[in-house]
Design a protein around this nucleic acid. Sequence first.
DNA 1: CTGAAAGCGCTTACAG
DNA 2: CTGAAAGCGCTTACAG
Lengths: 332, 332
Amino acid sequence: MPTVSRVLNGTAHVSELRRNLVLAAVKDLGYRPNGAALTLVTGRRFLVGVLTHDTTGYGAAGVLQGVEEEARSAGRPVAITVVGSAEDGDVQQAVDLALSQPVAGMVVVDFDEPGSRTIAALPPSTPVVVITSSDSRDNVPHVPFDDHAGGLEATRHLLGLGHRTVMFVGASPDKPLPGRALGWRAALEEVGVRPPAPIAADWNVSAGYAVGLTLADATDIRAVVCGNDEIAFGVVRALQHRGLRVPQDVSVVGFDDHPLAAYWSPPLTTIAQDFTGLGRAAVRLLLAAVDPDETALRAEAAAQARDDALRPRLVVRESTAGPPKVRRRPRA
Amino acid sequence: MPTVSRVLNGTAHVSELRRNLVLAAVKDLGYRPNGAALTLVTGRRFLVGVLTHDTTGYGAAGVLQGVEEEARSAGRPVAITVVGSAEDGDVQQAVDLALSQPVAGMVVVDFDEPGSRTIAALPPSTPVVVITSSDSRDNVPHVPFDDHAGGLEATRHLLGLGHRTVMFVGASPDKPLPGRALGWRAALEEVGVRPPAPIAADWNVSAGYAVGLTLADATDIRAVVCGNDEIAFGVVRALQHRGLRVPQDVSVVGFDDHPLAAYWSPPLTTIAQDFTGLGRAAVRLLLAAVDPDETALRAEAAAQARDDALRPRLVVRESTAGPPKVRRRPRA
DNA sequence: CTGAAAGCGCTTACAG
DNA sequence: CTGAAAGCGCTTACAG
């Protein structure tokens, strides 16, 4: 048995004869090492764990893809566990489920409350990297993306076009404002405009559509920043259905640069994010902390990824323009 | 140690005194059973494995979500492994990676060639359920979805509107036609029309847009069925950019009922699929084969799911109409 | 270079 | 009801 181990792992020299014998038997029996036994004896864990609230939204799916790609290229499978809600029970259950498997470490997708809550519920002994836009995560290894800067840019763009004020669509009642909304608010404040109340909406098309319908009735609204592109898609369509033109009557900015944003009508101005890059960077960072080898190299790569690609970027398309010269006419 | 085991698993009666002692210690130390040891000794595996080529497309993401939901409700985490391509090396690598973890069984997403190839590469000892539209999978447990019927319905709808022929967009060069294309072909043949050559396109918006541009130049094309909604989105937009109206000049049908299909302009006629349901059914079937308890109940539930919800459904919206300058047939 | 021995953290019979 | 013993499939020192 030790001989087999030595052959398969190349741990020590084995005579050609015996070596070939072992190899033949392995192929013959379709032998596959028992991962559980391996983990038990060596203590090494291979799975890269992901804890997330959502798996299908454009952002979360992109992160997942990045995590998977990077993990696979490091020869590691990934285990995903969904955190059902921000409630203690669900958070605890997700953590328990995730930790019941031999995970090398966890990537936590801190895009919303369930994600945030999860961080604290993880035992300190678990290696973790969180993907976050909150700057209160400095005490834990994290891959930052600058939602605040994104919101700032989106809003400045609209202000620069000549708009007096800008609405934000995509708040959640009773929950802290997302970073992008904070950036929106900061942009208004920096030009001395008192920010209006952010409008509540789930982050999907139909919620956006519903909000768009009410927006159409408010004749003084000219410019809006949405929490994500799906909301923006819905807002734009609702406005159009009510006879308003985008951007001539109302300008709309989305967030994330969804693959369909460029094909929307009109093509959507938005803030591009590199979600896949975020996922890759997170895994690189995690593996650097966990893998004994190459630590230095990998940490460096991770630090680099942080600086460059992961910064949000304004993509100006055709859903934004200066405000109408005359007061928006009430809809027919 | 056996006592701890008995308390935690409720395997046998333990005196109150000892019981509480154990529970206290467990809480105190933050004890968490070692999954690897458990798997090694009992042979039970908890992970539900998923083997798929894609994770972000609407269909694959939906399946993933369904798998995750059902697995979580059964107290099982899911491990996903992406099959990079249909090449032997990639397929083998994915299988090895997936099987290196203690998986109870695998769900294979047979939406494309990499998926199909994977089925054969799995050792016969691994419990497996494949999600497929191919009827050549009868020898392996599978959750069927009827792509052929979907293609048939989509095409019949167009034919019923009075179109003489229908194009199909979304073939892959050198690869077998997808089931939906087979259905399209069958629908044409059943009315004695010789099917034109299917048009090649990757299954995403930009590929659809590119095809749409060339379609706009072919003045005799009036009706097209697309491999999925993303392709259709691109085709529609390209047609419009070339000055053609949908559906007045050209009718377009998509496939899958993407969340944005209803909000496209014009709202897209498409074939709805219940991907999440597919994922759930697959896990139910897998667990029925693997779990000693409840086998009967679960198998029944799985069989039921098969009949009802998973059948594709035509959703008529506004991207289809009768051909230009041709009288529509009277309604039956 | 190559076997016998110990042990990773658990559970399942086995004796008390 | 409750401990001591064996063993799941591996790897890592240990003696040859």
